[in-house]
Design a protein around this nucleic acid. Structure first.
Lengths: 155, 155
DNA sequence: CCCAAATAATTGACATTCTCAACGGTTCGT
DNA sequence: ACGAACCGTTGAGAATGTCAATTATTTGGG
């Protein structure tokens, strides 16, 4: 143990005791950064990232979203959705279908291969997700989800 | 009301009922995206972004962090911290001080102007932050902070 | 019905941010 | 004393974010 660690708080603790560390937005950002990093490493083996995983998840869930709906839901620019879907479509994981009700819009669906890959990717994400949440009771987990929903969907 | 809205769930609701929408990581990402956007628009008037605001906050809070500590705490690459501090230092808001205990390290402090700007920026952030949290009781607010801390600082 | 305005997807340009590798100066362990 | 590890810095290249313009389609008002 170094002298500094005995005589005064270590740098890590000084930062954790800071005003910023008590700020909800900061905690949100840091928790998200951690979850994102964990998810991305888990998904890398399947050739996915958090973004493409989210798109694939919605396509595989029979939500049949249009690209605009995806953009709003994932907080992305419509042009980013184009690139995202291009990548998945080239890998034959998803398909664009012209919406019969509005031929401007494309409805996104998953192929069988897309559903299969998503199932595997979901398992991988769940496996690492447990690391951080193992110490949290199911009750707290549900509480957290509820409170986050209030922030994620305020209206 | 359009026929589609009466006969089946609207696109927005279909997405919110999806499996992905129940995922904690997704809620975290979306809540963070919203908070970040709100903070950034509030900070723009002061020439700050969430990142530079965070750095300034720690400098103004007498935490005296080194650049490496900042990088770890904010989940940034050390090279990004350099650019961030360069910007703040050129505006005379913060100062780099060689750490007497370790001359490789720079300790960051805030100038009087930096503290003054931070105080104003903090007010601006608080003003918009209340919008999303107004419907949340102080009790829930504290619960959420506690649960997020578990995810943000797992060790 | 017709036309202007609004909307969905796409493209391309540009800025910002992320990620890495390399380097000089400093400290640490042995 | 010496090699390994570490801090800050620089620079390059990839990935992401942001925005304007374009085409095709829908919508609403006259």
């Amino acid at each position: 143990m170094s002298p500094a660690e005995r005589t005064r708080p270590t740098g890590r603790d000084r930062l954790r005791d800071s005003t910023l560390a008590g700020d909800l937005s900061f905690l949100l950002a840091r928790a998200n950064a951690r979850a994102l990093a964990a998810a991305n490493t888990a998904l890398a083996a399947h050739g996915l990232k958090a973004r493409s995983y989210s798109v694939l998840a919605l396509a595989a869930d029979d939500v049949r979203p249009t690209q605009r709906e995806l953009a709003e839901f994932l907080h992305l620019d419509p042009s980013q959705v184009v690139a995202l879907i291009d990548g998945l479509e080239q890998r034959q994981l998803v398909e664009r279908h012209a919406d019969p009700a509005d031929r401007r819009a494309n409805v996104l669906t998953a192929t069988d291969a897309g559903r299969a890959l998503f199932a595997r990717a979901q398992d991988a994400v769940r496996a690492v997700g447990l690391d951080s949440l193992a110490s949290m009771t199911p009750r707290d987990h549900e509480r957290l989800a509820h409170l986050l929903r209030l922030l994620a969907f305020p209206d």
